[in-house]
Design a protein around this nucleic acid. Structure first.
Lengths: 119, 119
DNA sequence: TCTATTTATCAATAAGTGTTGAGATATTGA
DNA sequence: TCAATATCTCAACACTTATTGATAAATAGA
């Protein structure tokens, strides 16, 4: 992830419809959702949804695949990881306690319990 | 952190000068840097730097304090944490392995060695 | 007070972005 | 082929945002 990619990613996330789309796809998981479902969820026309998904795909935040008549979009999880890493790189500045809460917050999001991963 | 705050934050980060400012301040740590130093670092005029720092401060990503003739800016680390948490909330979708790499990446940024877990 | 220093505000211009609706493209089944 | 479905492309318009240079405000020291 370089500066240009990060700028594209943040620009993509700075628009209401697109931020909603990404969060919906992040929640949906790797299986993704069809363009039609996404359009309904965010209340966008087909042309408007296509415009925004194109922006997100160009930014590398989502990916698409074709299944029959439908286009299915899903979140690009590694890209999201890289974006977070880029933003917080060298955040410590000699003081690990400064950015450790960020790690804890993200960890809590992914693994509420540390014994069983069945959730 | 609600949707409006997240949109403002991502919009603030989607501009080259501002993204550089945030990363410089993230690296600099809580002590921060003066407006003059930041202007030199990113190659911006005083008016331009003021415009961008105002945007970042309004987005809650940085904070300012006055020391003599200088304004000193520093990163708002909790806001950055909240932004990451907002974006990745419920990212698992029943599959923790999907977003665990994000946690590992962020953790690696803050603690290159795991000798001491208490920081 | 006067001057140098540092930062912020303002207005004008230039550049970029989102929305809309019509129409095009691709797929499926008869 | 024809029709229905699902999605995408295109161009015009309105809206937002970044940059620039001049100027204003606040501070420190003499």
């Amino acid at each position: 992830m370089d500066e240009r990619q990060a700028l594209n990613a943040f620009a993509a996330l700075s628009q209401e419809t697109r931020l909603r789309l990404v969060r919906i796809l992040v929640t949906a998981g790797p299986d993704g959702l069809t363009a039609g479902t996404l359009a309904t969820e965010v209340g966008a026309s087909s042309s408007n949804l296509s415009f925004h998904t194109k922006e997100l795909e160009h930014a590398g935040l989502i990916q698409s695949r074709r299944e029959g008549r439908s286009t299915i979009y899903s979140a690009a999880f590694p890209a999201l990881t890289n974006l977070i890493e880029f933003l917080m790189k060298d955040c410590c500045g000699g003081r690990p306690e400064i950015c450790t809460p960020a790690v804890a917050a993200l960890a809590a999001c992914c693994s509420p319990t540390e014994a069983t991963t069945h959730g």
